[in-house]
Design a binder for these strands. Sequence first.
DNA 1: TTGTAGGCGTTATCAA
DNA 2: TTGATAACGCCTACAA
Lengths: 369, 369
Amino acid sequence: MSSSKHNKPKQTGKVASISDVARESGVSIFTVSAVVNNKSHVGKNLRERVENAIRKLNYRPNLIARSLSKQKTQTIGMIVPDIVNPFFPMVVRGAEDAARKQGYNLLLCNSDDSLPKEEAAVELLLSKRVDGILLTKAAGDFSPSLRQMIQEVNIPFVLVMRTYADLTKDAVVSDDYQGAYEAVCHLARSGRSRIGLISGPLKISNAKERWRGFRAALEEQNLPYQPELVVEGDYRIESGFRAGHALLSHRPDGIYVANHLMTIGLLQATEEMGLRCPEDFGLVSFDDYPWLGVFRPRLTTVELPKYQLGSEAAELLIQRIGGDDGKPVLKKLLPELRIRESCGFAQFVSGDHRRLKPSEPISDSLAKK
Amino acid sequence: MSSSKHNKPKQTGKVASISDVARESGVSIFTVSAVVNNKSHVGKNLRERVENAIRKLNYRPNLIARSLSKQKTQTIGMIVPDIVNPFFPMVVRGAEDAARKQGYNLLLCNSDDSLPKEEAAVELLLSKRVDGILLTKAAGDFSPSLRQMIQEVNIPFVLVMRTYADLTKDAVVSDDYQGAYEAVCHLARSGRSRIGLISGPLKISNAKERWRGFRAALEEQNLPYQPELVVEGDYRIESGFRAGHALLSHRPDGIYVANHLMTIGLLQATEEMGLRCPEDFGLVSFDDYPWLGVFRPRLTTVELPKYQLGSEAAELLIQRIGGDDGKPVLKKLLPELRIRESCGFAQFVSGDHRRLKPSEPISDSLAKK
DNA sequence: TTGTAGGCGTTATCAA
DNA sequence: TTGATAACGCCTACAA
């Protein structure tokens, strides 16, 4: 059944290569390649012979070789702080789906928000010759070496969730200022006046933006900014816990927490201190998840379009990879306030300085039906 | 400043290759290679020259080329149903850490528990010539083609979380039988006698195991197995919701749910039906997450060692890649019952047919301090 | 210790 | 329409 001439008989145990197929079907490598990539015009006769050989030998093109030859890997690198942070899986999934749709794969790295790990990850991705990188920058500056790497290498980067003023690059982020602003306004409209903030690391752009939104809302609502009611965490549970203890001791009647993990920490602290939400303080969190709708307290929260964040970032990146070198784009996706029960019933105080429009929700709705 | 002889002057805009470095430092490619892989004995003098050139040119080894040459990619493929299912990030992270520690990277794919997507993913990974694959098998059989792929290709596979009787392969799973058994015993010991089950797809090994554990516990506790109290879901929220409606209409006084996502669905149904947990029924869930400790009801649940599942699977896989071809290994990791409040106070019924040992927890503890 | 040359599996450029 | 043949960047016997 096998072919007639064996120049180099196929080694057993090894997977078939293109030349094996060529030999088997008695044509040139070129022809096989043409068939595999269904190029223009290969004689119907030859094509069939080749296809049979492919099936017979169970041939599968070696993408590594192809990458080397084409100088393109069809792979995009993605660096996130930690895939275990429930925020990121959805972002990654969005990116993966968008990438795959265009024939790209994702190589994922975790930086743990550590500069050295981040640099190592970029280094690795560059060595693997990914065609572009999706980066959620770790807190802190670019090290000079990282900065150099990014500038010398001519593959596109797009920043995800976090911008970085210094480096004018493409970025896809959520409108964090707006999100925080709405969160705090909602708190105020529910009658809270001593409003605290558990912030992310102020070195991170979105934490800064959320902090700005917080301040702006306070001002807008004629509420004073009280430094002792603002504490900076690092977006992790433990820091939310510590921040909660610190903050709660000042008895705020409303708290806006800048992400979900820190909210968990805060709730742990709340429990320990014998306090309750929303009875003792109203709470607006950031990020929404399916479980927040079923457990108590039902968190009022600002949802970020996680999936889109990932997919749009990937699309933009691939566009860049494709050669588009228009000027840097900053996409800001809109957040969405989801009102549930963690601010309690309406404690509406009249006075239009709060800028309440009639149609605006003024409190959480406890009853859903 | 540049070197003296230019055989092929380095193209501007292109990244440096090993031959650029060789030219720049006036040595052979071999020497550069030796330096890069810090091989044995390269003259200190030359080594320094080479290292300078590397720095100057910003040289970074091309891992693609290396992979092609060595016929190893140092990459392992991992296929999970959906990274957005909160169960998997931790597993993936465990695998990633273990892999990286040994110089491997992870290429991640989502199968959405769909057979065609799964097959496409395997196909892709094989084409990318990964050195091994970590597979959480999608529900359902191996298609003949997939089966053939796995058998013909001689790279190792290790199954994660789900075994597959037909194919004797390595696998790392949790002891699901045991976990379910403990869950249901706890329910019974809290005084529940009409115990229902919301199961995963019975085509999936771990769902089957959990179902077996459920039955065994019932028997052990002298409780009848009532078919109308068992409903099969697909591990997703929506199915938990539907299952909840179906199950709750039969008024069980205890429910064991086989994963977290379905528990969320169940809780939604509970809400809709105006029921409450643990007042109306005791609940034991599967999988634990940080947020389960802070929201109400505080779920009593069986935690699986997610991180270890991933890391041990990766380690086993890498061992196989390394050439170990001992007989297939099945690692079963122990689950851990975490008692919180979703089964209510003790409703202890005396009678040692329940096999209560004095030291055993007999109910949830409501007060933590 | 250092260099040379062939090979890894594809694609791509020229001829035929 | 097909076929040689040279890259692609690196590793590795085998020589020197």
